[in-house]
Structure formats: structure tokens, C-alpha cells
Design a protein around this nucleic acid. Structure first.
Lengths: 188, 188
DNA sequence: GTCTATATCAAGATAGAC
DNA sequence: GTCTATCTTGATATAGAC
């Protein structure tokens, strides 16, 4: 899907890669078509052939980020043992994994550009989040699942913006506490 | 502090108000000095006398947002009954209150502009978050406080970007669950 | 499908009058 | 302290050649 018959990345993919890299390197507000074109190894005209406007490019960036998250979650599904709060565990683990390999930064800053340029670009994200909530609700009885999910949202948001005050040790304890919450629930 | 001897707002304050309003109305990426000046009721020259550059304006916006959060927290302090996890309860309640009156949106989008233009503008925010963590750690023994705080961070982040999938009913349940967590801890 | 050249414009910032 | 006028830059987008 991502490569053509010869096994080489399409211009489209190269452009999206370049844009994602740039956004995490130079910051969201400084993403320009010139820079993207140069990084992707083609001219601005070539870029604008593939994406007729900057907004089209941003839209495609968001779309791809969403698809990556979904893919990660489904790749993880067969590895988790069934049990209570499975969907919540899937959602949280997926997010936590992404934080570590730098992808999350790209996603965050990508979203940043999106909201800065045009809040409507976030519509597909809204939809995914809504679906995730349904999923989590559909397989959990208590509120622990929601709390755990929200805590991970909070943690990854902080990490996305380089605002996390936690040491590695702190983070490890927190992750374990969230897992405990998802398996044992809130004290009654 | 915010008003001069005649009880009228200073230009500085009018400008900061205007900028905050605009950011929540037209989006972070579209905040221009022209627009701010017009909304504040003065010329661009006048604006640039008060804030010599756009970056200076953004910096002041961030500063004021932080101060508002701190003030809210300290105003709340005498109203909460002492007990376990007081600092965590203060932090979470403050955040949750701000979400409701629209201020939070302004803050969020303000931060958005900041990161888009220049990640370093977030340095003071980093500092505040770090202080908050110290505060919370210093008066709680378990991890429930951290989890509750993170969950509220997650919730308010979603609400800040208009991404919250929760109904009023959902939200109410979640807030209660967080309070339960902060008073009763995680099941062991 | 990709390139170069160019039109167009918006925005930040400066200078100097009042 | 605020205004108007102007400079300058940088970025999106178009047009048409290859």
C-alpha cells in the first residue's frame, strides 16, 4: 500500500514522511511548503501536484497519523490476554508505546499545526476518540477503565509537548499504577 | 494591579484581553498583530509600543495564563477541607473549574500558538507543572494522587481542543470517580 | 509528473510625526 | 503613548515549459 510496484516509496509517501520529520524538528508553526519540498527531494511545483494545497497536505498528515495509531492497536490486540477492560488496556498500551519511539512527538506537533491552521482538520480525530470511548465503554463495567484511559491521555499529552515532569522512575511507577487500576479497579 | 488609578484598564491589559479572545475565536494560527490591535482598539504602532514584538506579546499571554491558574488555586485553598491528597485535590479542582467557564479554551489555544511559533515559550509552563508535581508528591503517599491528576490533565486536554467525547452525564461520573480515587486510593 | 518563474499577498517590524 | 506610512520578507499558489 505504501510502496509502488518497484518497491520504492511514492512521492506522496516521501512528502508525508518529510513533513512529519520537519514538524518534529523545526516546530509546527514553521512548516512551509518550500521546506517540505526540499526535504522530500522535489520541487515545490512537484509537491503541489501531489497535494494541491497546504491544507490538503495537512489533512493527509492527520489521516496517516490516525491510521498509524489504529494499526498499532490492532497489531497489539493478539498479544494481550483477554480479560476485563481489554479495550482500555489496548488503547492505553498503544498510546504508551508510541510515546517512546518519537512517533508521538510527530503526531502531537502535527496536530498542533492542524489546530493552528484550521480547527476543522481535527474532525477525524474527534471521530476516532469518540469510537475509542464507545469501545472502552462496551467492554468495561466500572469507571476505572475511563480513568486509566484519561490518565494515559494526560501523560502522553504532557510528553507530546515536552512538558512531562516525570523521571523514568516516576513514569514506570505511574504506568504500573494505571495497569493496577485497569485490573483491580478503584477501592470501594 | 490590573487597572490604573482611574479604574480603567491599561492598554497592556486591553491588548492581552483582545489577544486571548481572538485566539479562542479565530484560532491560534491566525492571530495577527493587526487583528489584536484592532480588537484592542488601538493601532499596530500603539500595540508594538506596549509589546515590542509578537514574541513578547505571546510571552506575556503565557505569563498571564499561568498567573490566573495559580490565583485560582490559591483562592480555592481555604475552601477545601484539609485531609489526604489536598494538593492533588487543589490542582484537579482548579483545572476542572477552569474548563467550564471558557477560560480553559483560551489558555489551551494560547499555548498552541506558543508551541507553534516557538517551543521555548512553554518553558514557564514546564516550570509550573514541575512545581505542581512536587507539591502533589510532598503531601501524598500513594500513586492515586498522581493518577487523579493525570486523568484531569487528560480530560481537560480533550476539552481544551474540543475533542471530548463525553456527555455531561459521563463527565459528572468521571469527576466523581476521580474524587473517589483521591480519597480512597486504588484497590489493593 | 516534475520543473522554473512569477504573481500575489499577508504579516512583522521600523521611522518619524503628533 | 499612540498614530500613519512604509519597508521587507517569506509563503502560498498559479502558469506554462519540459
Amino acid at each position: 500500500m505504501l510502496e509502488n510496484a518497484r518497491g520504492r516509496k511514492s512521492s506522496r509517501e516521501k512528502i508525508l514522511d518529510a513533513a512529519a520529520e520537519l514538524v518534529s524538528e523545526i516546530g509546527a508553526g514553521r512548516l512551509t511548503l518550500d521546506a517540505v519540498a526540499e526535504r522530500a527531494g522535489l520541487s515545490k511545483g512537484g509537491l503541489l501536484y501531489n497535494f494541491p494545497s497546504k491544507e490538503a497536505l495537512l489533512q493527509a498528515m492527520i489521516r496517516r497519523m490516525i491510521d498509524q495509531v489504529t494499526e498499532s492497536r490492532e497489531a497489539l490486540r493478539p498479544q494481550l490476554k483477554p480479560g476485563p477492560n481489554l479495550e482500555a488496556r489496548l488503547a492505553t498500551t498503544t498510546l504508551l508505546n508510541m510515546c517512546c519511539d518519537g512517533k508521538m512527538q510527530e503526531i502531537a506537533t502535527g496536530l498542533m499545526v492542524a489546530t493552528a491552521e484550521n480547527p476543522r482538520l481535527l474532525d477525524p480525530v474527534r471521530e476516532v476518540i469518540s469510537e475509542t470511548l464507545q469501545r472502552i465503554k462496551s467492554d468495561s463495567d466500572d469507571d476505572a477503565a475511563l480513568l486509566g484511559w484519561l490518565a494515559v491521555e494526560g501523560l502522553s499529552n504532557l510528553e507530546m509537548h515536552n512538558l512531562s515532569p516525570f523521571s523514568d522512575q516516576d513514569r514506570e511507577r505511574i504506568v504500573q499504577a494505571i495497569n493496577r487500576l485497569l485490573t483491580k479497579g478503584i477501592a470501594s
